[in-house]
Design a protein around this nucleic acid. Structure first.
Lengths: 162, 162
DNA sequence: CTTGATAATGACAACCATTATCATTAACCC
DNA sequence: GGGTTAATGATAATGGTTGTCATTATCAAG
């Protein structure tokens, strides 16, 4: 029987150790926060949530942990254009969680969608293979976002829609 | 015979006036710089290029002009993860210039590709229509980027490839 | 379990791209 | 040309992110 990390799904500690990193309480807390949410949290969002349970954990540590997680490709860093980065767990093991984003350029609302993902991913995989070959480029991730106006902002926006 | 803007392709002045903006020398110079380059220029890059011919034009004006152009959807603002935004003319009128990006997460090199664009765009249009309907969302743009390691960085990078 | 090497932490300061301010200038309509 | 007013440019301010460094905690070895 394989041992877990004490808390949360097993494997986190192993993943950290496998990359030469230590698995600490702050890192555990940050991952748990990411696992619990369905929102697109900024570093400060995460800091505030973590801070409730562990008031000693600092914002700097949140940034550093997110950087490590991004390097390990366990979280993906998004830019939705509001001046701060947002972070999501990658869920690379379960395809069902894969989604893309609609970004409202007026109110910055983000809508996740999973519809049409299968068809998109199929084409993406094909494209990735071809691009990898042509440019000798090792593709490890992709980003797809649609920009526009959400339901609410469509009504109030002028002709420019901005 | 339609009158142009004095310099550059006709239509720029009209587009500005049509949105209630004035067409000034700094704006003209910034657009010309964007038209001349095939690179992905940051605000400072543009400022430095414009500065050679018009030393009086300030960085603030570059930012403001880019914001106006982005609002008018004549330029697209990219984030390639290096901490500064990059800007490209939209070329929305000629499909042939449409391209997507490969982003090297190690050296931040950007590769444009136009291959497979047709197939991608076809699926994207289909997806856009369906998403617009489902979420009552007015889509006006999309962003597609692939992340990974370029030819050079593949060789030198470790197992993590970061 | 204790210990030691060292990675990770946290408080703070520094950084730097971007934005706000405001007096001055210049575009554009008449 | 002249007046209105948006646009400009110098400067300061903002704020997300990163660097510094003394202290702490992880984890492998004994």
């Amino acid at each position: 029987m394989p041992r877990g990390d004490g808390k949360g799904p097993p494997g986190w500690k192993g993943r950290f150790r496998g990359c030469g990193h230590r698995f600490t309480i702050p890192r555990q807390a940050i991952i748990e926060t990411l696992e619990k949410t369905s929102e697109h949290l900024s570093a400060e969002d995460i800091y505030l949530k973590v801070h409730k349970q562990y008031p000693n954990i600092g914002l700097t540590t949140v940034y550093r942990t997110l950087e490590v997680l991004a390097q390990m490709r366990l979280v993906f860093k998004f830019d939705f254009g509001d001046g701060r980065a947002r972070y999501e767990l990658s869920h690379s093991d379960s395809k069902k969680d894969h989604h893309h984003h609609l970004v409202c350029t007026s109110c910055n609302r983000i809508i996740d969608y999973t519809d049409f993902i299968d068809e998109e991913v199929e084409l993406l995989n094909k494209t990735e293979k071809a691009l990898s070959k042509k440019f000798n480029f090792k593709i490890s991730n992709h980003l797809i976002q649609f920009y526009g106006l959400c339901e609410k902002c469509k009504k109030t926006a002028g002709p420019l829609g901005g």
